[in-house]
Nucleic acid binder design. Structure first.
Lengths: 171, 171
DNA sequence: TCCGTTCTAGCACGACTGTGTTACTTCCTG
DNA sequence: CAGGAAGTAACACAGTCGTGCTAGAACGGA
């Protein structure tokens, strides 16, 4: 708390005017990360719709998935902050619920990507949407994890993601 | 520290006889998790070699990968403990190095799996080993993450893993 | 100008933390 | 049996932590 106040240029008392407890601050921080991701994601919605109409479904899918992954420094920090909350989210019910919601949103994004690819004939119709959703979701979060520990480069992660989505189209 | 001492049935003074500092305790705990995984993994080495000679390469690969994933309660706890260290490992150099080593070992396991599948003709020769290693590794860690947060069932994770490895064989 | 809201700051309390130190017990070996 | 090593315990210290509380500043509308 004192460190946060210091970096914000506030005294402890002032900080506590906005956050009545540490839990409140932490919860807000989590929510703020979620909000930022959503804002960034929604910002590109119109452009994506236009691209889809031009038949660029594949590129749009890749682009959407990359939005929730740490492909620049800002998103890298967000991912690291999120990671910092992870252990507490295993214990704290509120944090757990919040992470649950965030995870569900990413999973839903993956499902839409898989469904979309199938709809435009970019995915083998023989594949199960649910199963492929789970696999894509795990890949996205796995690559995210390896990028935030800097054990995988952005270039490599991008290639792996592209490879995976491409694979979905193979019969 | 006091909580660890309590659960161990020791006083703080006694605990400090074994671990001269908190860092030492934490580092040991990380190393202990790594050791357990290795022991469990090595325990099945002979059986796997035998299975491979019988041509059961696919099942062996699946089995090896499952060994480093939380498919039972014991491994689930290990994964959660490991997760608890993650944020600190972003800062602390020693922890960072230790996690780096652990990650490298899992990555190497994935590489051997990919390479092995290719060697016995279970993988399309047109695939790049390095790229598929990265993809498999991300999938394994992604599924692990989703299992430890209990957002994915063991059954679903198993299916996704099996699906992925099977896919590698498709031309 | 007055007054309530909004914001800021400071202090102090009680609890908890890791560590340094000392002393005692247990146990094994020479 | 003596003595040293191994192990255990207890205490205090210096910090840090989150929080409760009070008081004052800044600001905006009546």
């Amino acid at each position: 708390m004192r460190e946060v106040a210091r970096e914000a240029g506030l005294s402890m008392g002032s900080l506590r005017y906005f956050f009545d407890s540490q839990d409140g601050l932490l919860l807000f921080a989590m929510q703020e990360v979620m909000r930022r991701v959503r804002v960034r994601f929604d910002a590109g919605a119109a452009a994506r719709d236009a691209a889809i109409r031009r038949g660029k479904t594949f590129d749009v899918v890749i682009g959407m998935l990359e939005q929730v992954m740490p492909f620049d420094d800002e998103r890298l920090i967000e991912a690291q902050v999120w990671q910092a909350f992870a252990p507490r989210a295993l214990i704290d019910p509120q944090m757990r619920a919040m992470r649950r919601q965030a995870d569900d949103e990413v999973r839903e994004l993956c499902r839409q990507c898989v469904f979309g690819l199938q709809a435009v004939g970019l995915m083998d119709p023989g594949r199960a949407v649910a199963g492929e959703t789970e696999r894509l979701w795990a890949l996205v979060d796995g690559l995210t994890l390896h990028m935030l520990t800097e054990h995988t480069s952005r270039r490599t992660a991008r290639q792996a993601l592209r490879r995976h989505v491409t694979e979905l189209g193979r019969a």
